[in-house]
Computed example of a mutant assay.
Amino acid sequence: MPWRFALLIDPAASDDPREDYSRTFSAVAPAGPVLPVGELSTQRGDGIFESIGVIDAHPQEVEAHLERLVRSAQICDLPAPNLAQWRQAIAAAAGHCGTGEAVIKLILSRGVERGPAPTAWVTAADAADFRGPRAEGVRVVTLDRGHDSGAPARAPWLLLGAKTLSYAVNMAAIREAKRRGADDAVFVTTDGLVLEAPTASVIIRTGDEYATPTPAGGILQGTTQASVFSWLDAQGIRTAYRDVSTDELRTADAAWLVSSVRLAAPVSEVDGIPITVDGDVTARLNGYLLSPRD
């Protein structure tokens, strides 16, 4: 992933009235040493982030990502982000993306241990090549997330609905999926409900309905999934937020993993059970997702 740009941010208060935040930005060498040793994002994964897909220098669905950044900050007891400041930082990063697909990452950390303020930065990099998974599909295995569907309400301190930097479990799940001969994983609850993939939302089609698990506390609310549902709704196609059982995933007429950078990857197999890859719908989904969207 060739890095194109990195920008350190001096986080402004959410009610800061300034219109121009350029003096709060500091461009740095993407490959150079920047963060101090005591930075809690690296020591404990204590922070939040967003990954914004970029098409031909156009950052996709910025407001949806910023809204989720605010929700994650609230869940994690981090200072509320100044959205005007972050918008300007995103625009600065997008100017370095050029043509093709790229990704802008927003990171807000609790800062240096015992330090006075949070740390924030934005990066821009070339996106990975996902043309293969989009065309051929991905094989997934279901993995027990280790809690039942009531855990988010009982234990909000687990931060299950926040997009945090603590991604060790997510990466371990993908490694386990590969050990089992699959490409990716889908987390499920101990009582048999589908949650999400480690880095994507799950959409299934059963009959004429497209469904995704209800974005309650245990599921990160997917920006790309919401955009796909808006697109489907505009065409009069039925969508639903509801409980999706593991058995329903395995017997779906079609299924997709969707995310901001991979876009829509059809699921070709669940736990060794083949699922039909709907190439026509997938092509239309990705045609939409590759078009500029605000």
Rank of each mutant, 00 (worst) to 15 (best):
L220G: 00
Q74N: 11
D184P: 02
E209G: 02
W231T: 03
S259A: 15
G217N: 02
Y241V: 00
G98T: 10
D56E: 12
A12Q: 05
W256H: 09
R180Y: 04
P152R: 08
I90F: 08
R18L: 12
G150V: 00
A117F: 02
A117C: 07
S268I: 00
W157H: 13
T24R: 14
Y167N: 10
L257E: 04
D15T: 15
D253N: 14
L106T: 12
P36K: 04
A120C: 04
A173W: 07
A89T: 03
T212F: 02
A73V: 00
A283H: 10
Y167Q: 14
T199K: 07
D10H: 14
V37Q: 06
C97R: 04
A117S: 10
R284D: 13
I203P: 03
A13V: 05
H96K: 13
I104D: 11
A264Y: 03
Y210I: 06
T123N: 07
V37S: 04
Y241G: 06
D126R: 12
D208A: 15
L78W: 10
K163I: 04
G218I: 02
F25K: 05
V270N: 03
W231G: 07
D247R: 13
E136H: 11
A13P: 03
L66G: 07
T119D: 09
A264F: 00
Q85V: 09
G279P: 04
C76H: 01
C76L: 13
R284G: 04
R154E: 12
S259F: 01
P116Q: 04
N82Y: 02
